[in-house]
Design a protein around this nucleic acid. Structure first.
Lengths: 165, 165
DNA sequence: TCTGATCGTCAGTGGTACTGACAATCAGCT
DNA sequence: AGCTGATTGTCAGTACCACTGACGATCAGA
């Protein structure tokens, strides 16, 4: 296959499946579609589920903390929590120790929703991963974790300074 | 609140890094940031590079074919190609065999840009993957390919009917 | 020739995420 | 105490990406 002119004609049409960005984007899209479809009957989507998952942790959590954990902007959290609050899934109340903050909590109904959402979410991930064997799935999770944790050093464990920009 | 109730209180705060969607999204974001930064000096971004990659394949290609290969809507291709054409990187000309179509080609300058972009893109992917060893990187690519190709059966090889919806 | 489908295009919509600003509040300093 | 700067939640504005729906031009088949 070395009959090329310069650098630019790979003879066969380039396969986008060689490009990591394409693969990550489309894998993400497919998983999001499966997840959203599975959670739709509960009135939430995959992004909501992420927030619920953080809030179910037990500890009182401010909006900013949820946002940082999920890796989204704090301004984006507002609308997300607005919607969840409107559905009666979460509740905001002022933090008595720091009245700038809102403590966000799951409501009773929110806990029920989360419990069911958990099952549905696991099912969606399972269907997504059905094409590969469990070892590959575990390896995928490990690899991705290594890749993103290198990018965000310390977001989940500690109250890190959240390297912005 | 039963202690260690059934499903809803994992005691420790839930780690978003357990959720595949989070990992895929943030891995994608980080890679896109690296890629875009690497390609910015050439006046293109990662999405442009994908199109260039298809166009460098040699075969005359219509806009729709490029769009399908990249997995984007044909209406999205218009603006993308508009920008690339404005920069002198690609050129559109009517297909004499089917005058509804535009044949999209790399210009001379487009080939040069692509050649350099290829190097930059490979460097960006390399930096992205620097956190893991090469075996894991190859395995990641295989796994992702299996996952997305299950979702789009036949998009890259054949002129499939593009299973929409 | 007439009908239905295809391709490129554009307008409009929805969703997401950002910046910049603001009021309220806190913390450190004098 | 008072002042100053930073933080939190909020909102408005912007940008981007992808989609739907429509349209003209064109092709293919009856």
């Amino acid at each position: 296959m070395h009959r090329m002119a310069t650098v630019s004609t790979p003879a066969a049409a380039a396969d986008p499946h060689d490009v990591l960005g394409y693969l990550l984007k489309h894998a993400n899209q497919r998983l999001a579609a499966l997840t959203d479809a599975a959670l739709a009957p509960l009135g939430i989507d995959g992004k909501d589920f992420g927030a619920l998952r953080v809030l179910a942790g037990g500890e009182p959590t401010s909006q900013l903390q949820v946002a940082q954990r999920l890796g989204v902007d704090r301004t984006t959290m507002v609308a997300l929590l607005d919607a969840l609050e409107r559905k009666g899934i979460v509740a905001r109340r002022p933090d008595p120790a720091d009245r700038r903050r809102n403590i966000v909590e799951l409501t009773e109904q929110g806990h029920e929703t989360f419990a069911r959402a958990r099952v549905e979410h696991a099912g969606a991930e399972g269907r997504f991963l059905a094409a590969i064997d469990p070892d590959a799935a575990a390896q995928l999770r490990r690899t991705l974790r290594a890749l993103v944790e290198r990018a965000e050093p310390g977001t989940p464990p500690g109250p890190g300074p959240a390297p912005r920009g």
